[in-house]
């Protein structure tokens, strides 16, 4: 898309109080047992199992990949997660370890998490990660430029990275914790989608606050309006700070109420998380066995 077709000032203003009230109502839904079980499994199948630490090793990534394919071998009906998310230099290790499974490899790129580098370096890194075998690229936007209202710069950068991705899916991280207002979140979402994002993602997980329900609602509404406008379905990935099943189910409620059933699958919605997977497993096993579980009996990843 050419950037002349889109004006960032077209984005609507966001009623923050209204958003918070709506979220508060979503968070109080009672979810019955059968629905809960289905929702827990669905949430698990949407997890991007993530390890983004400077101390990551090939060994740790291999272990994480095993966990991704077989989250809990005691039960055969527990689905694998959607993807494993790693730094570019570990993509090859992950790809190798996940060979033969449907679990995808996502790589963070473009000078993650700050994005403070030149465009040339960012594009090189993206191409390199795709070449190594990444199915999905998680890029960060240049928040400094965005906040300085240099929207064209951000737009062009996303376009360029999208081109560098080739066949790989592009997730655009807005880092909403640094955008200050919901109005900015909405603008950044619209901008990213028009520039060619396949997914929009809340956070790197390195900045607090990371994903929150209000921010997610605003982004989902942007996705809905973009769909009405263009007919294109864009995915959503809240990431960072989602560690409990209860919270994950709240996200699914917001998703279902805002975008409907078409988005209730791992192609359109992901959770970026590490601790969440084990909590989901504990709740699934609890529902099956009727007994509250302990983390001691689940593999650490």
């Amino acid at each position: 898309m050419k950037r002349t077709d889109y004006l960032v000032t077209d984005s609507p203003a966001i009623d923050q109080v209204g958003v918070e009230e709506r979220i508060s109502r979503f968070s109080k839904r009672s979810i019955k047992k059968e629905s809960k079980m289905a929702a827990l499994k669905m949430a698990l199948s949407m997890v991007d199992l993530t390890t983004l630490e400077a101390k990551d090793t090939p060994g740790k990534v291999k272990q994480l990949c095993t966990k991704a394919m077989h989250p809990h071998s005691a039960y055969s009906d527990i689905p694998p997660v959607a993807a494993v998310c790693v730094y570019p230099n570990l993509v090859r290790v992950a790809k190798e370890a996940l060979k033969g499974s449907k679990v995808k490899v996502a790589a963070v790129a473009t000078a993650f998490p700050s994005g403070m580098s030149t465009r040339k370096v960012k594009l090189e890194e993206t191409k390199w990660a795709v070449n190594e075998g990444a199915d999905e690229i998680d890029m960060v936007i240049s928040r400094g430029h965005f906040l300085a209202s240099e929207y064209n710069f951000v737009f062009d950068e996303i376009c360029a990275v999208k081109e560098a991705c080739g066949q790989a899916h592009l997730k655009v991280i807005l880092e909403t914790g640094e955008l200050s207002t919901l109005d900015n979140v909405r603008r950044a979402s619209d901008l990213a989608m028009h520039a060619g994002a396949d997914f929009i993602k809340t956070s790197t997980g390195k900045i607090q606050p990371a994903a929150t329900l209000p921010v997610t609602l605003v982004m989902l509404e942007a996705i809905r309006d973009f769909y009405y406008e263009t007919g294109k379905r864009i995915g959503m990935k809240p990431a960072g700070g989602i560690a409990t099943s209860k919270l994950a189910l709240n996200y699914l409620v917001v998703l279902r109420e805002t975008l409907g059933n078409d988005w209730l699958n791992a192609d359109m919605f992901r959770f970026g998380a590490s601790a969440l997977a084990n909590d989901l497993l504990m709740q699934i096993v609890k529902e099956k066995e009727g007994v509250y579980q302990s983390i001691d009996y689940f593999s650490k990843d």
Partner: peptide
């Protein structure tokens, strides 16, 4: 029974 069977 909950006091006795909680795994944690």
């Amino acid at each position: 029974s909950h006091f006795a069977n909680h795994m944690d």
